[in-house]
C-alpha cells in the first residue's frame, strides 16, 4: 500500500468529479479507489452505487444520461474485461458518454501473476473499443487529467478512461 496514508491525488480526483457535475458514482471497489470512494459515500449530493459487476455501471451511466445526470464508473483494470460488450453495444452504439476511473493492476511490481494478462491487455482493448485513454502517473496532474478527460467525454467526444497507474497507487503487498 502507499506509504502516505492520505495522499492528495484522490481528493483531487473527487474535486474534479464534483467540478464535472458527476452525480452518480458507480463502483466495484478497489483499494486504489478507497479514499475517493469514502468521499463519494459521504457526499449527500452524490449517489454512490455499489455494483455486483462492472458492466452494470456502464448501463447505469447510460440510464443516468438518459435522465439528465452525469455518472462515473470506478473499477479495477480486471473489471474492464467484464464491460466489453456493454461498452460496444450500449455506449458506442448509442454514443453515450462514459467516464471510467480505472485503477491499474498487473504492472509496476505486481505480486499476483493472475493480474498481469488483463493489465497488459487493458490499453489495447480500450483502444480497440474506441475509449480514449488518459494515463495518470503524476499525482500533481490528477485534477487536470480527469477534468480534461471528463470535459471531452461529456461534450460528446466519446467514452474516456482515466488509467491510474499502479506506480502511483503503490503495488499491493502479498505477505504471509
Amino acid at each position: 500500500m502507499n506509504s502516505q496514508s492520505t495522499p492528495a491525488w484522490p481528493d483531487e480526483l473527487f474535486r474534479a468529479l464534483r467540478a464535472l457535475d458527476v452525480r452518480q458514482i458507480a463502483y466495484v471497489p478497489d483499494a486504489g479507489h478507497k479514499q475517493l470512494l469514502n468521499q463519494a459515500l459521504a457526499e449527500p449530493s452524490i449517489e454512490a452505487i455499489a455494483l455486483t459487476t462492472e458492466q452494470e455501471g456502464v448501463a447505469l451511466a447510460a440510464g443516468a444520461w438518459l435522465g439528465g445526470q452525469r455518472a462515473a464508473v470506478l473499477m479495477q483494470s480486471s473489471g474492464l474485461g467484464n464491460c466489453v460488450n456493454a461498452i460496444a453495444s450500449i455506449t458506442r452504439a448509442c454514443q453515450f458518454p462514459l467516464l471510467m476511473l480505472i485503477t491499474m493492476r498487473g504492472e509496476w511490481g505486481e505480486g499476483n501473476p493472475w493480474q498481469v494478462p488483463m493489465g497488459t491487455a487493458l490499453a489495447p482493448v480500450l483502444d480497440t473499443m474506441g475509449v480514449h485513454l488518459n494515463r495518470l502517473e503524476d499525482p500533481g496532474a490528477a485534477y487536470a487529467t480527469l477534468h480534461a478527460a471528463g470535459t471531452q467525454c461529456f461534450a460528446g467526444g466519446g467514452p474516456a478512461a482515466l488509467l491510474i497507474s499502479q506506480r502511483l497507487i503503490g503495488a499491493k503487498a502479498f505477505v504471509e
Partner: peptide, 17 residues
Amino acid sequence: GGMGLAVATGLGLALAQ
C-alpha cells in the same frame, strides 16, 4: 443490445429522474 443490462439502465434512469 447489451444483454443483461436492462435493469441497470433503468436504475441509472430512476436515480436521475
